[in-house]
């Protein structure tokens, strides 16, 4: 199967200057390569959805963007400057412009909800307790959590509440870029829609650039300006690029590429045949 990738508009010129750029990014864990030669530009103000099967390297890519993991090859640029050319202080300063919502929310379980949301403010700003309290209450209200939740520990919260606290924490420092790692995974449809709404509202309230790693096509439809699909390397030929689709959500749903259409429509018949043959 041969597909022409030349029509993919990876620069997305409709938006502002690039704030995140991946240049020939590869990442291996031991002998296993998860990402191969990924190049991608995310312009200011765009919401980019990254879709793909489990294990295709979406979350790894997001962690490399946030510099929580180092790439094996290639580089990441923040605001046009490659990370390899920056010193630690410079990276630390710019990292505060990012908010990150973890797949599992990753709340600090020894702290209350209030302390979780206040953590970044306490750690990085010289704000008074009164100012911090005000911001924490504002953020909790923004994500629809009652003030009574602020004294609870993460173990006392439901999955949806944890995600919302994680979002409040990610937004506490008013980031310019928000990275969402599977924000709706494991949530019921109502809570999924609430999180999707919160992502949209965040963008309306302040001009943020977002990357949303997700499996949920309802999230893609609702929040994405552009969609990129990664494909597992184990099922690609060496010469094929790992990004098998880049375009709008509408294009993703109408594409003739069976790899993309099977994923977005959730059709497993061919995969089941492949698995049976294997």
């Amino acid at each position: 199967m041969s597909i022409d990738f030349s029509h993919f508009d990876l620069s997305a010129a409709a938006f502002g200057a690039p704030v995140i750029e991946l240049r020939g990014l590869s990442r291996s864990f031991g002998m296993q390569t998860v990402l191969r030669d990924i190049s991608l530009v995310v312009p200011r103000g765009e919401t980019l959805a990254v879709i793909g099967e489990s294990g295709c390297g979406k979350s790894v890519m997001l962690k490399i963007v946030m510099k929580m993991l180092e790439p094996s090859r290639g580089d990441v640029c923040w605001f046009g400057k490659p990370l390899r050319q920056r010193n630690e202080l410079d990276i630390h300063r710019d990292r505060l412009k990012f908010g990150y919502l973890f797949q599992s929310a990753a709340l600090f379980d020894s702290m209350t909800v209030f302390e979780n949301v206040a953590f970044g403010l306490r750690q990085n700003t010289g704000m008074s307790d009164a100012q911090i309290t005000q911001i924490v209450h504002d953020r909790l209200r923004d994500v629809g959590l009652p003030m009574t939740a602020s004294s609870k520990k993460p173990a006392e919260l439901s999955g949806g509440m944890k995600k919302r606290v994680g979002l409040a924490r990610a937004l506490a420092l008013s980031p310019e870029i928000v990275l969402y790692d599977e924000p709706t995974t494991g949530l019921d449809p109502i809570m999924t829609d609430i999180i999707n709404e919160l992502i949209l509202r965040t963008r309306e309230r302040q001009p943020v650039t977002s990357i949303v790693v997700t499996h949920e096509m309802s999230t893609v439809r609702k929040v994405a300006d552009r969609v990129v699909m990664l494909y597992p390397l184990s099922r690609l030929r060496p010469e094929e690029p790992q990004i098998v689709f880049a375009g709008t959500a509408a294009e993703a749903f109408s594409t003739s590429d069976p790899r993309v259409s099977q994923f977005v429509h959730g059709q497993a018949r061919e995969r089941l045949q492949e698995l049976a043959a294997a």
């Binding site: 962690k63 946030m66 510099k67 929580m68 630390h92 990292r95 505060l96 990012f98 908010g99 990150y100 973890f102 797949q103 599992s104 990753a106 709340l107 600090f108 379980d109 953590f119 970044g120 750690q123 990085n124 924490r169 990610a170 420092l173």
Partner: peptide, 13 residues
């Protein structure tokens, strides 16, 4: 394991 150490990094600590 629960990504709390990554969360610390993400929050500038």
């Amino acid at each position: 394991v629960t990504e709390q150490i990554d969360a610390l990094k993400a929050l500038g600590a």
